[in-house]
Design a protein around this nucleic acid. Structure first.
Lengths: 147, 147
DNA sequence: CAAATATAGTTGATGTATCAAGCATAAAGG
DNA sequence: CCTTTATGCTTGATACATCAACTATATTTG
């Protein structure tokens, strides 16, 4: 049976785009911030805007599972970016807060991320962006619906 | 500094699309083939068409590093999908061949993959596909050039 | 040709991801 | 109420990824 090789499909291009973006982005973050991964940076951004998020919700936002998120947050607590405390209303949950160090990173990080996004999307029109979003969402929806 | 949350960006959509596709694809493969990952399947497809590929070249095609590829091929040799033998012309290299079992998988796998691609791209026009490819390649190129 | 450099691949250390099982708490249903 | 079920999170086992250091062979170059 003849089949187009994976490297010739759009899935290859999708994977390539996101991997290159991640590499590029990580490099620019590491240039200015010691010891912070993209994913950790994203967690900081989310918690800054939505302090009430559960670990599970954060996990979903950065495409990880609960176990990974537990370990990731432990790490970030050890590195003094986050503080974890018991939630008094629902004692199964934790309240996760940014520390001073975490807040400090949020001074430096956003400009870097904005610049990463800008540079990586250079030469792509508003209309193309909409098309891109639309098509990608169709693909995700197609894959999800058959579950 | 105010910044659009990562979950609202196109990068989130890219990541979501490829992750859903992978999950969907793996599920359909696992339904019919015991103990084969998408990546292993792709390696089989590549080797079938290009038997002369080096481990390094295969690694690049599936976005892995050399060390991962060494281990992945070891695994596939242990599972009897592949056979590794010394390359007589360049003795640093290996010649990697499909075994009978590997070839057998190639009877079953391509139709599954074709169906996965078709279903996940349902409702997306030829023109949209071209747009998608074009934009994704721009993003990858933008990220790569700053290296 | 010998020394320097490049290439293909492996290995060990370490980090991260994933799954299944488990614990504690909360919510729902008889 | 009290049992059952659901939820939030953690842990251990295991797999996989990544980096740097290494071996072996090939190629280049003075």
């Amino acid at each position: 049976m003849s089949i187009t090789l994976p490297s010739e499909t759009v899935f290859h291009s999708i994977e390539k785009a996101i991997k290159e973006y991640r590499k590029f982005s990580q490099k620019n973050i590491s240039n200015q911030i010691e010891d912070l991964t993209i994913d950790q940076g994203m967690v900081l951004l989310f918690l800054d805007k939505h302090s009430e998020l559960t670990q599970k919700e954060i996990a979903a936002l950065v495409f990880k599972d609960n176990a990974s998120m537990t370990r990731m947050i432990n790490l970030m607590v050890n590195k003094k970016y986050l503080k974890r405390s018991m939630n008094t209303i629902d004692r199964r949950r934790f309240t996760i807060e940014l520390t001073a160090k975490g807040k400090e990173v949020l001074e430096t990080l956003p400009p870097i991320i904005l610049s990463n996004r800008e540079k990586s999307l250079e030469g792509i029109s508003k209309e193309e962006m909409i098309q891109l979003e639309t098509i990608l969402k169709k693909i995700a929806a197609n894959c999800e619906k058959s579950e």
